[in-house]
């Protein structure tokens, strides 16, 4: 007999793949759209099951965007008590919507807030959850969701199942799945729900913008096709100026390893890797980065990896498409010059 605290589940009742639609007050987060793309893919493998979304304190425009990106129905929770985000109240509200609509699979973007909410939602629904999945598949035999995630410092990949409980829940970091194309002809249903809060236990008192001083005025790493990243091998914050010059030339941006972030040369928002961000640029140039597994976890899906490293035995050299061995202080300026020449910015 299973744990008596778990209410019995009739698996047949659970249908569809739903996504928590996080937004910033003005528009949906990219990760919500990425998850809708994945949800469609999973739903197609579950007999074209419906794709749904849970949107708290969002607008009809946001719901419409979700529909254009793959949702069939979106529930907007309109309770005025939920206008501003507080973890306990949001988690309870999400759980209530999910309990009512009974999706077979429920996905949450592992942003900072998503990570905060996900496990509480799962517990409230007395189901399991897998954090930070890098792949999601449907087991062709059982129809169960296969939740695949790196474990143990990224040295192992585990496949996790939730065979007896529903919904099957997983969180996924931003940037892991591609954003699906926007189809303004897609149709879907928007449902407004008021969810009763049992009690309010948290009050939001306010927020203060932090002035993080960034390397340069460059776009975020999640959305750039070219990322030039620096590590401890740069030796100083000055090295990042050189990387920014290269990045600008390639219409790209600058990223960093954990060690460069720890040294204070780059803000944490630019960190690539297991405890930083997962990115999928066309071109990743790692400068003075050794290529530890935790770092490589973040760039597995980069189309091309270039390494610039003084040590021919650095692990990254064996895990890149092209490696230039040498001191970056010499290599990067030469590379800038050669690229300018190739682009016709300077003459032969």
């Amino acid at each position: 007999m299973p744990c008596r605290l778990w209410p019995p589940v009739n698996k047949e009742e659970y249908k569809g793949v739903w996504v928590y639609l996080e937004h910033d007050g003005a528009k949906l987060k990219d990760v919500a759209l990425e998850l809708l793309g994945k949800a469609r893919d999973l739903a197609s493998k579950r007999g074209n099951a419906p794709v749904g979304g849970v949107l708290i304190a969002g607008t009809d425009e946001m719901a419409q965007e979700a529909i254009y990106h793959g949702a069939d129905e979106v529930v907007i929770v309109v309770n005025p008590e939920l206008k501003v985000y507080t973890p306990y109240e949001y988690a309870n509200a999400i759980a209530k919507v999910v309990a009512k609509y009974k999706p077979e699979i429920f996905l949450i973007g592992a942003t900072k807030r998503g990570r905060e909410l996900a496990a509480f939602v799962a517990n409230t629904l007395t189901t399991g959850i897998t954090a930070d999945c890098t792949a999601l598949e449907v087991d062709p035999k059982t129809g169960d969701l296969l939740q695949i995630r790196p474990t143990f410092g990224g040295t192992q990949m585990a496949t996790i199942r939730t065979p007896h409980r529903r919904p099957q829940m997983a969180s996924v970091r931003p940037g892991v799945f591609p954003k699906p194309p926007r189809d303004p002809n897609r149709k879907g249903k928007i449902i407004h729900e008021t969810v009763e809060l049992n009690s309010r236990k948290t009050a939001f008192l306010g927020a203060e913008k932090r002035i993080e001083h960034d390397i340069a005025d460059l776009p975020p790493i999640e959305s750039s096709d070219v990322v030039v990243a620096g590590g401890r091998g740069l030796g100083s914050a000055d090295g990042f100026k050189l990387l920014a010059e290269l990045a600008k030339l390639l219409n790209g941006t600058v990223g960093a390893s954990l060690m460069a972030v720890r040294a204070g040369w780059a803000p944490h928002t630019r960190q690539v890797g297991q405890t930083g961000k997962t990115i999928r640029p066309k071109l990743y140039i790692a400068v003075g980065i050794s290529g530890a597994v935790q770092h490589m976890m973040g760039i597995q899906e980069a189309k091309y990896i270039v390494a610039i490293n003084s040590d021919p035995n650095a692990p990254i050299v064996q895990n890149s498409d092209y490696a230039v061995i040498g001191d970056y202080k010499q290599i990067v300026p030469l590379l800038i010059e050669e690229i300018k020449r190739a682009k016709g910015i300077i003459q032969q």
Partner: peptide, 23 residues
């Protein structure tokens, strides 16, 4: 008492790269 269970575990592998080295 665990709703989830680990169905399999493998060492992490990375997609193969070209490995052209210029020294």
């Amino acid at each position: 008492g665990s709703p989830t269970f680990v169905a399999g575990q493998t060492g992490a592998t990375f997609p193969p790269r070209k490995r052209k080295i210029f020294a």
